[in-house]
């Protein structure tokens, strides 16, 4: 497995608060890596830094060994990094196909394209193909505004959209927090399938059981630093909780 994304010594301060104090993180191609930590450990901030939403005060980010500056979510996207935010970032009045192409609308060729005329048929087709290949039931809902959909369906739209565009790294911030059992199962299967295509999937979750089940590797953040890395195989919940709360440090000392 090759290292796709490597962040080291990331520092991010908000006024007097230092959210990240030299955090490290790495994600490899084709793996699901879980990022866990207690509330306030800096998970959200780290995701924001790595998806280009906020700029770090210090530290370096490397993609495939090359140092990069993401600059903005657009910059991150140019490197094939996509993020499913907790609020999903969907336009509720538009349908799933329209949402899948927000900011990336396809334009008709020729003169019509010069006027910015949308190629709606092509976008619908591509979105429907993507929804189908990801095993969702969204194809039948292509004309429904996202607002009328269930929480699980909305989550599927947001995740499918990101998968369509994520060629390297996919961040999922608490993707199953609002979902029922079956829907959670579907999302986790989807996550696995994306990783199998060679994408590095970063899963931020509070659910330890779920993390152990779906992730290959687990990185633990505490007080703005990476304090532990585990292989999921052979790790148990007690170890994870210990690393998150600092109990392990104390027992080691």
């Amino acid at each position: 497995m090759s290292t796709l994304l490597e962040a080291s010594g990331i520092v991010k301060r908000y006024g007097h608060v230092t959210a990240l104090q030299g955090a490290d993180f790495s994600a490899n191609a084709g793996e699901v890596v879980a990022l866990i930590g207690d509330n306030g450990a800096g998970k959200s901030t780290l995701v924001k830094v790595l998806s280009g939403v906020v700029a770090p005060d210090e530290g370096t980010i490397q993609i495939k060994g090359n140092p990069v500056t993401l600059g903005s979510p657009l910059g991150a996207r140019a490197f094939g990094i996509e993020t499913v935010f907790q609020d999903l970032s969907l336009a509720p009045d538009l349908g799933p196909a329209e949402n899948a192409f927000v900011g990336r609308e396809l334009i008709k060729p020729g003169l019509l394209g010069w006027f910015g005329v949308l190629d709606s048929a092509k976008m619908r087709r591509q979105a429907a193909d993507a929804f189908m290949s990801m095993g969702t039931n969204l194809m039948t809902l292509l004309d429904e505004p996202v607002a009328t959909m269930s929480g699980g369906q909305r989550q599927s739209v947001a995740i499918c959209r990101s998968i369509m565009w994520a060629s390297e790294v996919l961040f999922l911030d608490e993707p199953t927090a609002a979902l029922g059992v079956v829907q959670t199962r579907n999302v986790l299967d989807l996550v696995r399938r994306v990783a199998d295509r060679g994408v590095a999937v970063v899963l931020i979750s509070h659910n330890m059981q779920q993390v152990l089940e779906v992730a290959n590797r687990i990185e633990v953040l505490r007080l703005g630093r990476r304090v532990a890395q585990f292989n999921a195989a052979g790790t148990n919940i007690e170890q994870l909780v210990g690393a998150m709360t600092g109990a392990l440090d104390r027992s080691a000392a």
């Binding site: 979510p73 996207r77 609020d87 336009a91 538009l94 927000v102």
Partner: peptide, 12 residues
């Protein structure tokens, strides 16, 4: 009009 923040994140 639907979600300005979503547009912003998508580069609009």
């Amino acid at each position: 009009g639907s979600n300005a923040e979503a547009g912003r994140r998508a580069g609009i």
